[in-house]
Each structure stands twice: as structure tokens, then as C-alpha cells.
């Protein structure tokens, strides 16, 4: 695919900032890097619809870190609020009350809203073909409330509600495949992104901005606080997620899936798991080869199904 792009290397990163310093988010927040980069591509005429999540703290009275407009909506209704904004502007423009400002509406949520409580509203908005962007920064748990299980929590991960003890090795379920659920709605664009792959990320937002309809992104939201890692490890962990194949980078244009990066020599998943305290029980006090193997096999099976 040789589509026009202004993003060829990291040096093409737009210099305009739409995220101000001074946010109350944790040092080293992966989700914040994602938002920062996404807004650089989307530009100033964007309304960010946010719902309860860590990133909602970007708008914490009387301060706001995002330099575009924002609206805070109910947990399960981010896409519905986006719909009202898009439709309201369109209705006023079609009646000639205002000139259509070409505003982009970005729903920004965590995985709790995207995978769980807001899935119904998202399903509705995608099915209705709403012209909007949805960015889920997936930190694989309800981070804002103290890191409880969500349906995005990976297998064997500790969360504060999938405890680890004599009777339990963390989460017993496999992570919900939101990419495929979204894709099944036939949106024109779905993609996964990662902070450690900024060019890939910016290109995907650029591509999406040329498309009308629902444009949906799932970003790995490395969460040092919840995952139990040092803040400086964020990008290193993010890279490992990509290189072990645990976080595939892909897009689906009109339903057709294409991987935008295929790790040729995948690193063992163990290298990724070891970096985070939420997986500590896979290595201590005894090594749980059974669980590590189960995770590895799942990743292997995924990549076996990927045609080049």
C-alpha cells in the first residue's frame, strides 16, 4: 500500500502541541503519549468527548490540559454524546444557521468504557455510521478506580479484583477481542496502535481523517502504576508488547485486515511479562510454566493465522 503520507519518519511529527504540561496523570502515563500524538494529527478543531477514565483528569476543574474543546459524558455514553455533537453541528449547518466548521469529534475512553459499559453505545454509533473517532487507550483494567478487572484484562494478570493467592493465579479469562467486535460492525476504519510506534500511529490517524464514518482505534495504554513497573519503563514495555506479538499492530479498511508491522522474530512473551508486577506470580515464588506457555501458545496461534 503506497498511500500518500506526511508521516515518513519520527521527524515528521507535527510540532503543534494540543496537550499542555501540568496534567494530574501519573508520571510515565502511556495513555497520555497516545492522546498527545493523536491530537497532533487531528488538529485544533476537535472536540474530545471524555468519559470516566484516568484521562478524564485532563479536564480537572479549574484546569484543562487539552487545548481543544472537550465534553465530559456518562461512562457508557461517550459515543452517544459524540453523536449529539456531530448531529447538532450538522443540523445547524444544513439549516444554514452556522457554517459547518468541519469539527472532528474524538471519543476518548479507557478499556472499561470501550470493552464493557460503553460497548452498547459504541455498537450503536458504529452501526449508524457516525462520522467520529474513537480512541480507546487500553490499560487492561479499570485504572482510575484502583486497577480492577475489566473484560480487557489479559489472562493471568493480577488486578485488584482478580487477586493472586493460593487459590487463584489472577484473571482466568482471555482478553475480549474488541478489534474483531468493532470490525464485525463494518466500520470503514479500525486500527490498533502503540505509543512506541509513533509514525505508525500518526499515519493511521492521518488515513482515518480522509475517511467519513466511524474511525476506531485501540491503543496499548502502558500503565506503570497499575501494571507495577517503573515510570521510565513505559516505552520499553510498549516495545516489548509489540515485539513479542502480544500487541499486534494492524488496521482494517472496510473490513480488510492488514498488519502494519509483523515482528519477524518474535521475542518470547516471557520477556514482556517479566517487566510487570501484575505478572509477578508467573515467576515467583515458583515459575508457572503452564500459564506462561498458555499465553505463548495463544500468541503463536494468532500469528500463525496472519497471512503476509
Amino acid at each position: 500500500m503506497s498511500e500518500e503520507t506526511v508521516f515518513k519518519t519520527m521527524k515528521d511529527t507535527p510540532r503543534q502541541e494540543y496537550l499542555s504540561p501540568g496534567s494530574p496523570l501519573c508520571a510515565g502515563c502511556g495513555g497520555e503519549i497516545i492522546v498527545k500524538l493523536a491530537l497532533k494529527v487531528l488538529g485544533p478543531r476537535t472536540i474530545v468527548v471524555s468519559v470516566p477514565s484516568c484521562l478524564a483528569l485532563l479536564e480537572l476543574y479549574p484546569y484543562v490540559s487539552i487545548k481543544t474543546s472537550m465534553l465530559f459524558a456518562p461512562f457508557g455514553a461517550g459515543p452517544a454524546a459524540a453523536q449529539g455533537l456531530v448531529d447538532g453541528i450538522e443540523a445547524l449547518a444544513s439549516k444554514g444557521v452556522i457554517q459547518n466548521p468541519g469539527t472532528k469529534v474524538l471519543v476518548l475512553t479507557g478499556d472499561g468504557a470501550a470493552y464493557d459499559i460503553g460497548l452498547q453505545a459504541t455498537s450503536g454509533a458504529i452501526q449508524r455510521g457516525l462520522d467520529f473517532y474513537y480512541l480507546c487507550y487500553d490499560n487492561e483494567a479499570y485504572g482510575n478506580t484502583g486497577f480492577q478487572y475489566s473484560s480487557a484484562t489479559p489472562f493471568a494478570s493480577w488486578t485488584s479484583t482478580t487477586s493472586v493467592g493460593l487459590e487463584s493465579s489472577g484473571n482466568t479469562f482471555w482478553k475480549k477481542d474488541l478489534f474483531e467486535i468493532w470490525r464485525a460492525h463494518n466500520p470503514p476504519y479500525v486500527a490498533t496502535v502503540a505509543a512506541s510506534r509513533p509514525v505508525d500511529l500518526m499515519r493511521k490517524f492521518e488515513k482515518a481523517s480522509r475517511i467519513r464514518g466511524p474511525k476506531l482505534f485501540i491503543a496499548l495504554g502502558v500503565c506503570p502504576t497499575g501494571w507495577g513497573a517503573d515510570a521510565k519503563e513505559t516505552i520499553r514495555i510498549d516495545k516489548l508488547a509489540v515485539e513479542t506479538g502480544m500487541w499486534p499492530l494492524k488496521e482494517a479498511i472496510n473490513g480488510e485486515v492488514r498488519h502494519t508491522y509483523i515482528p519477524r522474530k518474535r521475542k518470547p512473551v516471557e520477556e514482556y511479562l517479566k517487566t510487570q508486577k501484575r505478572y509477578e506470580h508467573l515467576f515467583k515464588p515458583v515459575r508457572r510454566d503452564d500459564l506462561i506457555r498458555a499465553i505463548q501458545e495463544r500468541v503463536d496461534r494468532y500469528w500463525e493465522s496472519v497471512s503476509e
Binding site: L58, E59, S65
Partner: peptide, 11 residues
Amino acid sequence: ISAAGNSTARK
């Protein structure tokens, strides 16, 4: 809040 990006006031 109609003071975009004012979080810089938070040091």
C-alpha cells in the same frame, strides 16, 4: 473551562 491548556499553572 474556557482557558485551554491552563494546566500549566499546576507545577
